[in-house]
Design a protein around this nucleic acid. Structure first.
Length: 805
DNA sequence: AGCACGCCGACT
DNA sequence: GTCGGCGTGCTC
């Protein structure tokens, strides 16, 4: 019997990024298995932390005294064999801690919360009882230890044995239970009991009849009272008479319980779709680790291909995972999948409460759900026997996590497909260059849906040169042609969608006399005006202050807001088209849970003529009556110092164009831009992905960027700008001789937003073709910089970063 | 991370 | 002398 457990402890540092051996108490030796959470003592004090059992051993090569596991948190492993292996791989490939990776794979509520408490002991004197504990037996350490003096006093008391330090390791995961009625007699016994009750006791008779019909099954109390017309009071009487027992049964928090979803049937496929489905199904049945790139314009029926391929996986007795960008995980999308697969579907996205996420996760874990639809982190869904992984809109940057572990869901999906020996389908109308290039080389198998379902034509696109417009009209967000088109749609009772590209753009306050711009005191960026709260906010650190009435610099009253927010656009449009009914969708109006869906539903049912929004309206929505799409500022992202700016602009414009004319009415798109000749905009006008791909590949080749090179970004930040800069130059010196001669190192440069939260950021970008020792080199780097971490210097490594700013 | 240990200055 | 400041090393 294994008596030693290798435990990964919840202490995210470089030094503790390895398993520690613990003695398993005899009583638990048959119970503890790899993948379970445990509570272990760690460190010289009385600290206790949560940990994951990685493996069991008979022996250990640690020659000190082993400590023993304090508590076992789970009855069954929460990380299976696959997850444990994935932890190792993920930590190594993203340069993050194993414990962080393990926690990332689980619902947030399964992360332990720690509370340091002070407890009374037998030696506690009444004076201490009064001063420290008041009338409690336990107080939070931080409540008492407020000053250095108080801390040293407490330490003395602890040495005296007057107080005891205790760490609570709290599992936040809570199961929801419901009161239920459990019959204690058989049906015939209930029928017999009817003769025993007093004449006229109709309620009790109803209760007995009800209990008899249950045939021993447990039923929720609420359902029982409704079905049999018995009051709670009567149930209490029944419990007293020994007829029934009130029990708590576990229930899942089902976020979609009240929604009424109609079952859907598979649609008839066109030839291209059929070819795609056949190829994928062949790979599922083989089974074979194949990566498909399903390339299809908006409206070409990619989703139907996914659904039918997923159905094939289920038919094989396997499971299916479908990843969708957070933003397109709309009720429409969920309903479509739930309509096809019903109760087999679990949904995971950020809109769920933490309890709902936990319950959905458990349904998957227990094998009660065979289909998972979800955003980025759903890629870790504990599905067993995976038959297919689908990643819709694979080019979306939300698939990359911005903080540690900085993983890309696509990489995780590919890893899992190798583990399960199953195909992956990457779908997009505008694949990322990396993916499309791999398809070109034959690494991925390309499937193309060139036709739109029903042969609908693509919308026509007009490019409007805003430089010319500005010369002719006063400063306005709306060009003359766009306004005419909007008025025309109003007259014809058709709907319009207007998109304001917020990337690289914001409304800030500027003094027209001295040019002063109000900036965040902590960060290096201008504050954004929020009319809803009447404050200036920093989008990076959350700093908030009042809107200035006079310029803080020159005291002029000519301080105005500048730039464009959705609110300002809405205001202007109400002026220009007073009769139009307008709905605005942005972070402010959709913050509340369900607001997003509600606004879309309003627009869908024709309660408004025009929908104004940010990027969030570019995806997933499909309204047949929308015949006009306007992009107010196509090129704000083009000015950003990022080699992916063109790619993002092209993708966004193509995507938003797809919102026009999805039904029998043809659509028209107006793109307002200051760069009408930019290739990203020209190719978007002609819906020419191939043209864009070829052109952009040439640009990437010239610039030495992905997919021709791999990239790694190293960031250093410090409260002192000079320290951050100096360390980065030292790092460059250290790095250069360790890397191949043809590897390019860019920087160090201050990040475009150099200061965030009072810290100064510097970055180095490594571009390489072949660096077999890179992993080792960077790991060494992390180990060597950990000493300086104490002094406040933070080092971050991002493999294949998506944002270079 | 969080804790103990150890080495220096300024106080009862 | 000792209290407590912080730099350093270690956690099974």
């Amino acid at each position: 019997m294994a008596q030693i457990a290798q435990v990964l402890v919840d202490v995210p540092t470089m030094q503790t990024n390895r398993p520690y051996s613990y003695q398993i108490p005899v009583a638990w030796q048959s119970q503890v298995t790899p993948g379970m959470r445990v509570v272990v003592p760690f460190g010289r004090g009385k600290r206790r932390v949560q940990g994951f059992v990685l493996k069991l051993d008979e022996t250990t090569n640690y020659d000190g005294d082993l400590k023993a596991i304090d508590a076992v948190v789970d009855l069954a492993p929460v990380l299976n064999h696959e997850a444990l292996e994935m932890t190792e791989w993920l930590a190594e490939s993203t340069f993050s801690f194993r414990i962080t990776c393990a926690q990332t794979m689980l619902p947030a509520v399964m992360r332990a919360k720690y509370e340091k408490q002070l407890r009374v002991t037998a030696q506690t004197t009444s004076t201490v009882q009064q001063t420290v504990f008041k009338d409690q037996t336990e107080v939070p350490f931080d409540d008492v230890a407020t000053t250095p003096k108080a801390v040293s006093d407490l330490l003395r008391l602890q040495a005296d044995g007057q107080v005891d330090v205790y760490y609570h390791v709290k599992n936040q995961a809570r199961r929801k239970t419901q009161l239920a009625v459990k019959p204690l007699l058989t049906s015939s016994e209930f029928t017999e009991a009817e003769t025993d009750v007093r004449a006229g006791a109709t309620q009790q008779l109803a209760l007995l009849k009800g209990l008899a019909t249950l045939n021993g099954e447990v039923l929720a109390q609420k359902a029982f009272t409704e079905r049999f017309g018995v009051s709670e009071a009567t149930i209490r009487v029944g419990a007293k008479k020994g007829w029934l027992e009130k029990v708590a049964v576990e229930v899942y928090r089902d976020p979609y319980a009240t929604s009424n979803i109609k079952p859907t049937k598979p649609l008839k496929l066109n030839d291209e779709q059929q070819v795609a489905v056949d190829q994928i199904v062949t790979a599922i049945e083989a089974p074979k680790t194949t990566t498909f790139l399903l390339e299809g314009v908006t409206g070409s029926g990619k989703t139907e291909v996914y659904l039918q391929a997923m159905a094939a996986a289920l038919a094989q007795g396997k499971t299916a995972l479908m990843l969708v960008p957070e933003i397109s995980l709309t009720p429409q999308m969920v309903n479509r999948v739930k309509g096809r697969f019903g109760k087999a579907v679990a949904v995971l996205h950020s809109g769920l409460s933490s309890g709902e996420k936990y319950d959905e996760w458990r349904r998957i874990q227990r094998g009660e759900a065979q289909v998972v639809v979800g955003a980025r982190s759903a890629v870790f869904a504990p599905l067993k026997n995976l038959g297919l992984i689908v990643m819709d809109e694979e080019h979306e940057s939300t698939y990359k996590q911005d903080d540690a572990p900085r993983y890309h869901a696509r990489q995780v999906a590919l890893w899992r497909s190798r583990y399960h020996n199953c195909p992956v389908v990457l779908g997009s109308a505008t694949p990322s260059l990396e993916t499309r290039a791999r398809a070109e080389k034959g690494v991925y198998q390309r499937l193309v849906l060139a036709d739109r379902v029903n042969r609908r034509p693509m919308p026509s696109v007009s490019i409007i040169d805003m430089k010319k417009e500005m010369q002719q009209h006063a400063e306005s967000n709306f060009s003359a042609p766009l306004l005419v088109a909007l008025q025309d749609r109003l007259d014809r009772h058709e709907q319009s969608v207007l998109m304001l590209n917020r990337r690289g753009y914001s409304s800030f306050v500027l003094c027209r006399d001295c040019g002063f711009v109000l900036k965040c005191p902590n960060c290096d960026i201008s504050l954004t005006l929020h009319m809803d709260t009447h404050t200036m906010k920093c989008h990076y650190c959350g700093h908030e202050e009042a809107i200035p009435r006079v310029c803080p610099n020159c005291h002029s009253r000519q301080i105005r807001y500048y730039g464009t927010g959705t609110e300002k656009v809405e205001e202007e449009l109400r002026d220009l088209l007073p009769d139009a009914r307008i709905i605005r969708m942005d972070n402010d109006t959709t913050r509340k849970k369900g607001a997003h869906a509600k606004l879309l539903a309003q627009f869908g049912s024709g309660e408004a003529d025009i929908l104004i929004g940010t990027q969030m309206i570019a995806k997933g929505l499909d309204f047949p009556n929308v015949t006009l799409v306007g992009v107010l500022n196509a090129d704000t992202a083009l000015g950003l110092p990022d080699f992916r700016a063109s790619e993002r602009t092209f993708q966004l414009l193509t995507q938003v164009s797809g919102r026009a004319g999805r039904a029998e009415k043809t659509g028209h798109v107006y793109i307002q831009t200051f760069n009408p000749d930019h290739y990203a905009i020209r190719f978007a006008k002609h819906h020419d992905y191939e043209g864009f791909f070829k052109y952009e590949m040439r640009m990437r080749h010239q610039g030495g960027y992905p997919p021709y090179y791999f990239t790694v970004q190293i960031t250093a930040s410090d409260l002192d700008e000079a320290v951050a800069a100096k360390r980065m130059y030292q790092l460059l010196q250290w790095l250069r001789p360790r890397l191949a001669p043809n590897t390019i190192i860019l920087g160090p440069t201050p990040k475009p937003i150099a200061r965030v939260n009072r810290r100064y950021y510097y970055q180095i970008v490594i571009k390489y073709k072949q660096e077999p020792n890179l992993k080792q080199t960077l790991t060494t780097l992390l180990h060597e910089t950990q000493v300086q971490q104490r002094q406040g210097l933070q080092i971050g490594i991002d493999v294949e970063p998506l944002h270079f700013m």
